[in-house]
Design a binder for these strands. Structure first.
Lengths: 121, 121
DNA sequence: ACATTTCATAACCATTGAGTTATGTAACAG
DNA sequence: CTGTTACATAACTCAATGGTTATGAAATGT
């Protein structure tokens, strides 16, 4: 309903090869051959991954003689991040709760020592 | 290489139905029927989506009579967020660069009016 | 004991995804 | 023109996804 490309973005990020390619591209432009070098995989397989990334808007490609240098495009990543942000409190309040719990325990311990040193469960 | 469950997490998030389910669960626990109500989809289809979310660790399920209340588990979301954070500069430096450019233009305009149009480094 | 509610599982189907090999093509070098 | 480099596309295999209908099973109500 929100009419975004979150589908293709998350789908693209679901593959470790593609995440690794993005990690490489975060360091700067690279050719198809360079991108494929770390992987035990045929060249067309890499081209397919790049096409997925391109369709998701995560990379764009230029021309340099016979090479097709790829560069990362961060906009979809920003969108994905924005989506996740809506849930940030969900994993942060966990720690808040833990903090509160620890504080309670400390307080209880203090109280226990001040008055009667009994019970601890 | 990082040996995380980013694959299943991002794959789970790639489906709009599942994202909607998570959005609903962010508001609190819900039964399977409640979760499926907004969708024009059979009940087994919803159960399948819930299984995907469960296997990805994004939800957990309890027991309340015949109902199986689902609750959201944010840990995988935090992991996904952490992964994306590594690329934050990529979409923030864009705006930084834009800001810098605009600042430069403003400065240049002022300078141009004050003295002659000088080059900057 | 029996029916109902709530959900899960099984079996099936169509589509997509990730990989392969083989082949085509654009740009350059001789 | 010929060959080479760097990449894309085609055609195929196989497994996984996302949906369906039909059926099974656990807890509850009567």
């Amino acid at each position: 309903m929100p009419s975004t490309h979150l589908d293709s973005t998350f789908a693209a990020l679901a593959d470790p090869t593609r995440r690794a390619i993005l990690a490489r591209l975060a360091l700067g432009e690279a050719s198809v051959a360079e991108l494929g070098e770390p992987f035990a995989m045929s060249q067309p397989a890499i081209s397919k991954h790049l096409k997925v990334l391109e369709l998701a808007g995560l990379i764009s490609r230029g021309r340099d003689a016979q090479r097709r240098p790829c560069r990362i495009e961060a906009a979809p990543l920003a969108e994905a991040n924005a989506w996740l942000e809506r849930y940030r409190q969900l994993w942060e309040q966990r720690f808040d709760a833990l903090d509160a719990l620890l504080a309670d325990m400390k307080a209880a311990e203090k109280t226990a020592r001040k008055s009667r040193p009994r019970r601890k469960s």
